[in-house]
């Protein structure tokens, strides 16, 4: 066995330099020069240049005037982007049913006249706890509430939602969806421009 030690140790060292040093450094160099925005987290900046979010990472919303995203199971608070993860609740766990019931109640409390069934993705926790998007159905479900809370005509909010729908990528891949933070930022921007 000892005769293998020298080649093994030297080869491990050299391979560590190649695959653990050179390779990530080369990818970083290429990434930072070709796709700098994506490589640094797809950050959204306001007019002053301050980072106010990422197109890829969701934020928590609980006010009636904002669209809400997927429930997040991260600890100790939702949408903790330094501790990603799901609830891991099993399908028959009573805690799952309770959590879903509670989320439905929270939605209906702010929207008592809405008796439509709630789209499932709006009341179930995402896998990452950071899901930036919801289904089109989940966005449509909230239009009336947001419009009323902002005293905007429903049609205007609906137009904003429609303009934020991301279709299947290349018309084939994934699911059609709506980016919640992007939509909410657009809502706030619309409110500012319509002010006298």
């Amino acid at each position: 066995m000892t005769s293998y030690f020298k080649p093994a140790a030297t080869l491990l060292l050299l391979m560590t330099i190649i695959t653990g040093g050179f390779y990530p450094a080369l990818v970083t160099l290429l990434a930072q020069s070709v796709f700098p925005a994506q490589a640094n987290g797809s950050l959204i900046r306001d007019k002053q240049g301050q980072a106010i979010g990422s197109t890829q990472i969701g934020q928590g919303f609980s006010q009636a005037r904002y669209f809400w995203g997927r429930p997040s199971a991260t600890a100790p608070y939702p949408y903790n982007a330094t501790a990603s993860g799901g609830s891991n609740l099993g399908p028959t766990n009573p805690a799952l049913r309770d959590a879903v019931a509670q989320r439905i109640q929270a939605l209906q409390q702010l929207d008592p006249d809405n008796h439509a069934p709630v789209p499932v993705d709006l009341v179930t926790a995402s896998a990452s706890g950071l899901d930036p998007q919801i289904s089109i159905a989940a966005a449509n479900y909230q239009i009336k509430r947001v419009a009323e809370a902002r005293r905007l005509p429903e049609s205007k909010v609906r137009d904003l939602v429609d303009s934020h729908i991301e279709p299947r990528q290349w018309r084939v891949f994934g699911e059609p969806r709506v980016n919640v933070l992007g939509l909410n930022l657009a809502l706030d921007a619309a409110a500012q421009t319509s002010r006298p």
């Binding site: 609830s87 069934p117 993705d121 896998a127 998007q133 699911e175």
Partner: peptide
């Protein structure tokens, strides 16, 4: 998830939503 039926949620797939068992899944997938 049949355990969630009766709560007033919509788990049916359509062109508006994936439906199904979305607990622990991402909207884009």
């Amino acid at each position: 998830n049949p355990a969630l039926t009766g709560l007033g949620i919509d788990q049916t797939a359509s062109n508006q939503q994936p439906g199904g068992n979305m607990e622990g899944k991402e909207a884009r997938f």
